[in-house]
Design a protein around this nucleic acid. Structure first.
Ligand SMILES: [Zn+2]
Ligand SMILES: [Zn+2]
Ligand SMILES: [Zn+2]
Ligand SMILES: [Zn+2]
Lengths: 135, 135
DNA sequence: ATTGACCTTATAGTAGCTTTATAGTTTAAA
DNA sequence: TTTAAACTATAAAGCTACTATAAGGTCAAT
């Protein structure tokens, strides 16, 4: 199968596939005489794996790490589990930070109703005053 | 005041100040004969405003928009409030997405205890199987 | 005279693609 | 058969918000 078919099958753009190949996440496929890439079922699986990892928010580096574990299937899987644990705590701290941010934004927004002039806008005043606690 | 003093006062790096100037967020200051930038109190306020906006998660484009409102102080402030509302809903949708993600990751993690081989790792199997719903 | 701290510009790197430019190949319609 | 659409290729730039590096000019003190 050629790159366009693979792209459609997995639901990515062709450039993304070339990009993953360039980044070492997808093995370089064979080429036809005209230089066109030829993909196999293993590439479909590999690409789908990458995409599902991306949907889970894993970075390309983390995906690369997972792949290296897959290449050595008789190791204990503690490292895989640890990678996921790290990622989960990463996601959790993002959530916490965003929730604090939301609170701050909502209280800022509450300091203005509409029907004012910019000059007297509670939002702009709130930002300009700067009695904010970081983070 | 020169760029280093401004940087220290507001708590950013000098390159960041030049970057904001280049991006049109901070007005170009006067120069000494030797080419050194000379800043005034207005630059201090302007830079502090930018930084507080950044802490609130506003993009440079959004900050630029806010500045354009400030330049026209007798307009009604509805646009300012609307910008903040948009930003809040943006933040909220990020939170929602991350919470869904966390749930997915936690359930994936629960499908493996340690003490398995990579071959049998519940996490890797869970990703490879691909019975995930997007987003 | 030379060290060190400061300033200048220009350029590249970060993440994960997307977009653009330019060009060659295949396939189908006219 | 010609030609146009659709596909492929590579290389390079663009996106965000900086950060880092390089190579050099300026200034005060030693
Ligand atoms: Zn992660
Ligand atoms: Zn307002
Ligand atoms: Zn926003
Ligand atoms: Zn496991």
């Amino acid at each position: 199968m050629r790159i366009g078919q693979l792209a459609q099958l997995v639901g990515v753009e062709t450039q993304t596939i070339r990009f993953y190949e360039q980044q070492g996440l997808l093995p370089p496929p064979d080429r036809q005489d005209n230089g066109y890439r030829v993909y196999t079922e293993r590439h479909v699986e590999g690409l789908a794996f990458i995409r599902r990892c991306r949907i889970l928010g894993l970075s390309l580096a983390e995906i690369h790490e997972l792949q290296s574990y897959q290449d050595d299937p008789h190791q204990p899987c503690t490292a895989v589990n640890a990678l996921l644990d790290d990622h989960i705590s990463h996601v959790r701290s993002q959530i916490t930070a965003l929730q604090a941010l939301e609170k701050q934004l909502v209280s800022l927004r509450a300091s203005c109703n509409d029907d004012r002039e910019v000059e007297a806008c509670g939002v702009l005043a709130g930002i300009s005053e700067g009695n904010m606690h970081q983070q």
